[in-house]
């Protein structure tokens, strides 16, 4: 669509203009996001390496089966699906804010930025609930011949292989890497969501104060949008690696 405006014989590398045809700020945001992608990628691949190297790993459908106010109902994938849709939807409101920015419509940008911020806060609330539920969980584990009740933390994994004990199947401690990777990676992602919410809040205030109207363009909203979409993009892979497979 945009390329229709560009003559085909443009000499991009002759100097005097950006060979990428976008501003310095946006190029640098892209390069930052690329480095961040490698950070997340390294985390997730390290998790994959450890998971591939052990004989037993926690079954996500077994670990993540709770839903707020649903008591002990077995609802695998339900809560994390809700979180996924919250984040996809906040990505849509963000891209709509960028769209309104192109049209220089301040009211529209304000409306969609507020919705995006609310989506981010809703996601963080969900994650806080999920972490609390996992840490304060109460699962029977056979440790040194005794039944103990464990939550999932960075030092305890109650989701190990099941063994027969006094005529009933009971779990044994699993690889402790599970909690470390889960809390480490979802925590790193959650921190990105948190900083994304702060950035969006700053952008909302700057929009409200009319800074972008004075500047003549809403490119800052586009840069914040790139960061926000990246957070959604990372979640897509976290969702795959921790919950689906």
């Amino acid at each position: 669509m945009s390329t229709t405006a560009i003559p085909t014989n443009t000499k991009w590398w002759n100097g005097g203009r950006s060979p990428f045809n976008i501003s310095y700020g946006k190029v640098m945001m892209w390069y930052f996001l690329m480095s961040d992608a490698f950070t997340f990628g390294a985390f997730l691949i390290s998790y994959g390496t450890i998971r591939f190297s052990v004989n037993h790993w926690a079954d996500p459908n077994h670990v993540f089966n709770a839903f707020p106010f649903a008591g002990h109902a077995n609802l695998p994938l339900a809560f994390v699906s809700l979180m996924t849709f919250i984040l996809i939807f906040s990505s849509v409101t963000m891209v709509l804010a960028v769209h309104e920015g192109h049209k220089m419509n301040r009211k529209g940008v304000e409306k969609y930025m507020i919705l995006t911020i609310l989506g981010g806060l809703a996601f963080l609330g969900c994650q806080a609930w999920e972490w609390t539920h996992m840490i304060t969980g109460d699962h029977a584990v056979l440790v040194n011949g005794q039944i103990e009740h464990w939550g999932t933390t960075v030092t305890r994994n109650p989701w190990g292989p099941e063994v027969m004990h006094n005529g009933a199947m009971v779990a044994t401690p699993g690889p402790i890497a599970f909690g470390g990777y889960f809390f480490g990676i979802t925590g790193f992602h959650g921190f990105h969501v948190f900083s994304g919410v702060i950035i969006n809040l700053v952008m909302y205030i700057k929009t409200k104060l009319g800074h972008f109207d004075q500047r003549g363009h809403y490119e800052m909203i586009e840069k914040a949008g790139l960061y926000w979409h990246f957070v959604d993009l990372v979640w897509v892979f976290v969702f795959l690696c921790f919950y689906l497979v």
């Binding site: 669509m1 945009s2 229709t4 405006a5 560009i6 443009t10 203009r17 950006s18 045809n21 976008i22 501003s23 310095y24 849509v92 891209v95 709509l96 769209h99 192109h102 049209k103 220089m104 003549g216 363009h217 809403y218 490119e219």
Partner: peptide
């Protein structure tokens, strides 16, 4: 609407509708 910096030769033409987003 915007040619925000001299680095950009041709401002991208942005779609006018939100159909593609939805």
């Amino acid at each position: 609407s915007q040619v925000s910096s001299p680095e950009i030769t041709h401002a991208p033409e942005h779609a006018s509708g939100t159909g593609r987003i939805w």
